[in-house]
Computed example of a mutant assay.
Amino acid sequence: MHAIKRLMDIFNRKSKSTEQDTSNLIDDSILAQQTQLLYEDDLKSGEERLAPNIEEMEVLSHISFDYEKLCDIYLRVSYMHIQRKEFTKADQWCSKAYEWANTYNVLNNLTLTRCIERRGDIKRLEGDLSRALENYSQSLEVKNKAYDIDNEETINSARIIGHIYYLQGKYDKALAQYSMIIENRSLWLKNERDEIITKDLASAGFACIKLGKFSSALENFQRSLHLSLMIDREDLAAVSYNHIASTYDDQGEYSKAIDSYNELLISSKLDDNHPIFGETYNNMAIVHCHQGNFDQASTLISKALEIFLPKLDKHHPHIALVKKNLALIVSYQQSQDHSANKSSDIAIHDLAKILQNNPENYRTSLQ
């Protein structure tokens, strides 16, 4: 409270002085220092620890008229509550930031749009996709008045809106958003070496798959692969290979799917134990399962586990995916007559049993 009283005294003196006399009453570095202290505060600390700093920041902001930094603080506290899944409190702090930004016309760095988008984030996490879409659309409208259509800020908002449409199952609208981003982006027209575009192309590909447009999906994934190789991003290229192969698998073109996976395994410069190869072996196992090649499926699942288990916790999503695929393989086995492949039966069921009971047992056997 002593700090607050001191700051209020400064504020009162400033309000009574002339502009010439008060220009150096407070150094902007004080505001910057207080901001940095708050940013370094542990996110897990209680709001009561942050409150005195915030109160002091409010006074400092009035003195220096740096309302943008104050809005930034409010948004940080809002994010802290989001991390704790305290969405009501997060929204309250976001509303404070919005009120200040709107009242004092804080438009530098589009602080107002950050407040609106934070509201959208909160609604999205609460599962209210319609309200989230309203917020993101409002933010995009503000950005369109400040930037060109191919500016990074407007593109980010358009990308988020496309994601919301996808989550809502409105795949045609999602595809329209992604296509607009790709077609209107000047960086794309001038220089194809833009890794973000590879992800936009992948998003467009997924929307095409949902709409049953497999040829268009392949075109987007292949375009993404081409760009990834141009910019020497082996990791992105590996992801694109997997997308292409999975699309062939979805269409029942199993030979083409296997060829795509093998092309990745042969051409990639990534480390042999890179997680993407675990995913690749896992995906290949399902394709071989579709073809009835259960021996090969068993071998590939084993290779995936050799990569995953020494590094990942048993609850990791990759391990969960292997379990899911093992269940699919067992289901396929049970639905077909393959008495000649008893060895694959034993291998698949043994792997499933090991994973179900204790994944660490298999990890030990691989080392």
Rank of each mutant, 00 (worst) to 15 (best):
residue 305 L to S: 03
residue 83 Q to I: 07
residue 318 H to G: 00
residue 75 L to S: 11
residue 183 E to Y: 05
residue 37 L to M: 15
residue 324 K to Q: 10
residue 321 L to I: 05
residue 20 Q to E: 14
residue 255 S to L: 13
residue 333 Q to A: 03
residue 347 A to E: 10
residue 309 L to M: 06
residue 279 E to H: 11
residue 115 C to Q: 08
residue 337 D to E: 12
residue 169 G to M: 03
residue 226 H to W: 10
residue 295 D to Y: 05
residue 5 K to F: 08
residue 35 T to F: 15
residue 166 Y to H: 08
residue 15 S to A: 15
residue 341 N to S: 13
residue 146 A to L: 14
residue 227 L to M: 11
residue 152 E to Q: 11
residue 77 V to E: 10
residue 184 N to L: 07
residue 130 S to M: 01
residue 127 G to Y: 01
residue 150 D to W: 08
residue 258 I to F: 09
residue 320 A to N: 09
residue 228 S to G: 08
residue 14 K to Y: 05
residue 358 N to F: 04
residue 231 I to M: 13
residue 94 C to S: 12
residue 280 T to W: 04
residue 45 S to M: 14
residue 356 Q to T: 06
residue 221 F to H: 07
residue 155 I to M: 09
residue 236 L to W: 03
residue 200 D to V: 01
residue 230 M to C: 12
residue 30 I to W: 14
residue 266 I to R: 13
residue 122 I to F: 04
residue 341 N to F: 01
residue 362 Y to C: 01
residue 352 A to P: 00
residue 190 K to Y: 09
residue 104 Y to Q: 15
residue 283 N to I: 02
residue 261 Y to H: 12
residue 22 T to R: 14
residue 126 E to S: 04
residue 347 A to H: 03
residue 160 I to S: 02
residue 20 Q to H: 02
residue 5 K to I: 13
residue 139 S to T: 05
residue 301 I to W: 02
residue 146 A to D: 06
residue 273 N to A: 12
residue 243 H to W: 04
residue 22 T to Q: 11
residue 105 N to W: 12
residue 5 K to L: 09
residue 280 T to H: 04
residue 129 L to S: 02
residue 179 S to M: 00
residue 143 K to T: 06
residue 174 A to P: 02
residue 16 K to A: 14
residue 327 A to H: 06
residue 260 S to V: 03
residue 52 P to H: 04
residue 320 A to L: 10
residue 311 K to M: 10
